[in-house]
Structures are given as structure tokens and as C-alpha cells.
């Protein structure tokens, strides 16, 4: 158990490094840009209504103080981190003066919910079907599914979501194609709201599942068809062990471990895909928020969404990595 504690500590250190480097990179990219957030905001605020020159000057001074853009870069960097640690990233411009972090916090549950559900479904179903396909290599149905997986797997999230949108939005309009829940449903812990959420998530979720399923299916099929030739499987077959038990307890169990590592590797990509899918279906998650923020030139919000995304994905990968030694007894003993 002490080795496991050491492992957790080491991985936690890695997590901190990744988050620190990632968020710092985002900070420097946005701050070394020729785009001045103060002028950006000024342009946005003064576009709609006329302000007197004095009022504009006062506003510029207030915004400069707010963003701290007159200070040297390293000092800005320090104050950025010290505020971030305290959970303050400054107000959003898109919805001034709501704090940017509150907007992210409002959007995050939608994305995390969508991501968790779809990842669980794709990983479990894809691996199970892939394992069966690798073991029962003559099954017609599983072979057909393999062809389908090869056909769908390389298509990017956007195109799949877009095709789903066309199919279910225009040709056969049975499912809601936008929003996170019904417009006239009272939000809260009641059954109507929950059902409405599920109903609205069917299309975005299934388009993510369709893309992701193939990856796990094909990966698992390849892994299992390698494991099947191992001596212990042949031995178990000769020993008359039920094939259901061989597949479930021996073959898939062993092939599952590299698939868990693979999940940690591709999670960043899946997150990007979720963001795009959200945009296609106007799902009220982080992705839609980010794209709105980019379009509106909302400096703080872009920085906030990106930082939180990096931290969320890194934490999720950390959690997956912690599961790894629990699944693989060889790692656990060491």
C-alpha cells in the first residue's frame, strides 16, 4: 500500500506540472498577443452607445486597472496565478460584470455530464463488443460491426454531428436538435426536468458515441486476437473451461489494461470532440461558451474556459491513471 501512495504522489506531481505549464502557456499566448484587452473591451462597449470622451477615458483607466495591462508581464503573470488560486479570473465581457468563472461553473456540469456518460458508454460497449469480436472471429454480426466501425471511426466529430443534425433535424425530425433542456421546463430536481435533459442529450451523446465506439472496438479486437493465441487461453480451452468464462475472466480482463491507458491518452481529443459537438447542437456546455467567447472577443472568458478545460482534462486523466494499478495486479504488487 505504501508503494501505491508513492505512485499517487508522483502522479499528482505530474498533474500539477501539466496544469501549471498548460495554463501558463495559455496565459502567455493571450498576453503576448498584439490584441489589447482594454481596447477590445472599449471597442465593444462604445459600439452600441455614445460615451463622452471623459467617460471613455475614465472607462479606459478603470479597465486598465482591472486587467493590470500597464504592469510588467511577469507581475501580471504572478497576479494571474494568485487570483486563479483564489478562484477569481476577473469579470466576463460577454456578460459584464458576471465573473468569468461563474459562467464556466454554470457550463461545466453540462460538459462533464455529457463527457462522462459518453466515455463510459463508448468504452464499456466498444471494449465488450471488440473483445467478443476478437474471440469469436467467425461471427457474421461482429464482422459487419467491424466494417461499420472502420467506416465511421476516421470521420471527425464535427462531420458526424453535422450528419446527425441533418438526418434528425431535417429528414426525420423526431429529436430536439438544440439546447440542454426544454425551454418551458422548470429547472430543478424533478422528473420532468431530468427527462427533458436526457431527451435533449440523445443526439449530442449518440453522435459522440458513434465516433468513439469504433476506436475502442477496433483496438480491443486487435488486442484480443493477440491474447487469444497465448498459451494460457489454449490451455483453458483444452481444460474445458466455458468459453464465456475464458472471454470474460481471462481474455478481456487482460486486454482491458492497455485500453485504460489508451483512454487516458485520448481523453484530451475526446474533450475537443465534445466541445465541437456541443457547438453543433447548441448544447449549453463549455464548448458553446468558448466559441461564443472567441466570437465576442471576450478575453477573460477565453482564458478562463481554456484554463478550466486543461485542469479538468488533466484531473480526469489523473483519476484514470489511479485506477490503473488497481486493475493490474502485477503493478499493484510492485
Amino acid at each position: 500500500m505504501r508503494t501505491y501512495g508513492f505512485f499517487v504522489l508522483k502522479r499528482f506531481g505530474q498533474l500539477l506540472i501539466v496544469v501549471f505549464l498548460g495554463v501558463s502557456a495559455t496565459f502567455f499566448i493571450t498576453h503576448l498577443s498584439p490584441l489589447d484587452p482594454v481596447e477590445q473591451t472599449m471597442g465593444r462597449l462604445t459600439r452600441q452607445s455614445g460615451f463622452s470622451p471623459e467617460a471613455q477615458e475614465a472607462m479606459r483607466a478603470a479597465l486598465t486597472e482591472l486587467y493590470g495591462t500597464d504592469k510588467p508581464l511577469l507581475e501580471q503573470f504572478y497576479s494571474f496565478w494568485s487570483r486563479l488560486v483564489r478562484g477569481d479570473m476577473g469579470p466576463s465581457l460577454l456578460a459584464f460584470p458576471t465573473p468569468a468563472l461563474r459562467l464556466v461553473k454554470r457550463a461545466l456540469p453540462w460538459t462533464v455530464g455529457l463527457l462522462t456518460t459518453t466515455v463510459l458508454i463508448t468504452w464499456t460497449v466498444g471494449n465488450l463488443l471488440g473483445g467478443l469480436a476478437g474471440y469469436f472471429q467467425n461471427s457474421r454480426l461482429l464482422k459487419a460491426f467491424g466494417v461499420f466501425a472502420i467506416g465511421v471511426q476516421p470521420i471527425p466529430y464535427y462531420i458526424v454531428a453535422f450528419i446527425m443534425l441533418i438526418l434528425f433535424g431535417f429528414l426525420w425530425p423526431v429529436l430536439p436538435i438544440s439546447g440542454g433542456a426544454g425551454m418551458f421546463v422548470e429547472p430543478g430536481w424533478n422528473i420532468h426536468y431530468a427527462l427533458s435533459i436526457v431527451h435533449h442529450s440523445i443526439l449530442p451523446a449518440s453522435s459522440i458515441v458513434v465516433v468513439g465506439l469504433g476506436t475502442w472496438f477496433l483496438g480491443m479486437r486487435a488486442l484480443v486476437s493477440n491474447v487469444v493465441t497465448e498459451d494460457y487461453v489454449t490451455y483453458a480451452e483444452f481444460g474445458g473451461v466455458e468459453s464465456r468464462k475464458i472471454v470474460g475472466s481471462y481474455v478481456i480482463r487482460n486486454a482491458m489494461i492497455p485500453q485504460l491507458t489508451a483512454l487516458a491518452m485520448v481523453l484530451g481529443g475526446v474533450f475537443s470532440g465534445t466541445i465541437i459537438t456541443e457547438e453543433v447542437f447548441s448544447y449549453p456546455g463549455v464548448g458553446t461558451l468558448l466559441i461564443d467567447a472567441v466570437n465576442a472577443g471576450d478575453y477573460t472568458l477565453v482564458l478562463a474556459v481554456t484554463s478550466i478545460s486543461i485542469a479538468t482534462v488533466a484531473t480526469a486523466i489523473f483519476v484514470i491513471d489511479l485506477l490503473y494499478p488497481l486493475l493490474d495486479p502485477r503493478v499493484r504488487v510492485r
Binding site: 484530451g268 475537443s272 466541445i275 465541437i276 468558448l290 486543461i310 488533466a314
Partner: peptide, 13 residues
């Protein structure tokens, strides 16, 4: 680990 799309959007921004 980095989610690429947000990073690319930041660059576009």
C-alpha cells in the same frame, strides 16, 4: 494531455 481545440481557439483568438 492538452485539449487541442481550446488551445487552437486561443491562438485564433
Amino acid at each position: 494531455t492538452l485539449p487541442l481545440l481550446p488551445v487552437l481557439l486561443v491562438f485564433f483568438f
